[in-house]
Design a protein around this nucleic acid. Structure first.
Lengths: 181, 181
DNA sequence: GTCTATATCAGGATAGAC
DNA sequence: GTCTATCCTGATATAGAC
């Protein structure tokens, strides 16, 4: 699988940023794994921040597409369920799941990144719009947790020996139950 | 309120570590807010890591007490509900809540900290023991999310104008529902 | 596209005076 | 308990040769 260097940098960076954290990962480490020197990275990305932004971008596209669709629909129970299903489908793509995990683990480090802020706002709007303003607090809270249930299904249960497909179904079941009341 | 310097350092550090992240916060910043120089900090704490460990310690005590109690009880639905209630009560203490938020936001930075690892393991044991090995995956997942619902009640809904007490009750309601099935 | 070399800076940490 | 002064290290980033 001959990848171009730019993509390989993104792969390595994503993995190290996720495992060790964004700030704890130096360009030297990335360069070493890639088998080049630090300076070589600067040919492909102008700054360290550019690397991370290129990663965040990949997810932003998808999230904003989902938000646009959601906005265009009537606010019905059926729309809410369909949103959960679509989000679960997104999480099945490996690339997307990796970036989601990376974002969850580096929220403070990324708090000033404009693309990251856009993602947060899009997700906030989605979870907010899952409820009506006058729904009781318990319903609001429950619904706002429903997308998180899909994440949890992917990494809360790491010590379990449940097959992935079965776990996906369980997570979807919990998520749909949370969005239902 | 005349606090000793050691406690003030902990206060400031906890706030900055939470807002900006552990690695992104320098001893210089902490010292500046305190109105002293970096060197002065070293009279009170031997290293930066010692500061963070002193914070983590405060929570570990409580968590391990809860775990010890939980282990001593029979595994019944009533015990599970009582666990959730006790955890919710802990979260009402401001100090404890602040540290919980700090820990959630700095998981990667703290991944090598021994006290942090103990907390993670204690929480993992608690959430695991909330289910029986042969419970269906959806039940396991649901139960493992129940303590998180209490956290979520504290910071997912920040943009809402729901009174705190009402929010606490809603979070407890959702948590109990998740632990029930 | 990648290299070597270097500039520049900020971090954590220590020594020793007061 | 706090200060000044300083050390050492490792970070991002740039210049210019190959």
């Amino acid at each position: 699988m001959p990848e171009d260097t730019r993509t390989r940098i993104q792969d390595i960076a994503l993995r190290l940023f996720t495992e060790q954290g964004y700030e704890a990962t130096s360009l030297r480490e990335i360069a070493e794994e890639l088998g080049v020197t630090k300076a070589a990275l600067y040919y492909h990305f102008r700054t360290k921040d550019d690397i991370v932004t290129s990663l965040v971008d990949m997810r932003m596209q998808e999230i904003e597409k989902l938000l646009a669709w959601f906005r265009s629909q009537p606010r019905t129970p059926e729309t809410r369920r369909e949103l959960v299903v679509r989000y679960a489908r997104m999480l099945r793509e490996r690339r997307y799941l990796q970036i989601t995990r990376f974002l969850e683990r580096n929220q403070t480090a990324l708090r000033a990144n404009p693309e990251f802020i856009r993602i947060r706002e899009a997700l906030l709007e989605i979870t907010t719009e899952l409820s009506e303003p006058d729904d009781p607090p318990a319903v609001k809270l429950s619904r706002s947790m429903s997308l998180f249930a899909l994440h949890a299904g992917k990494w809360v249960m790491h010590s379990e020996t449940v097959p992935e497909e079965e776990m996906n179904e369980a997570a979807l079941e919990v998520a749909l139950r949370l969005v239902e009341p």
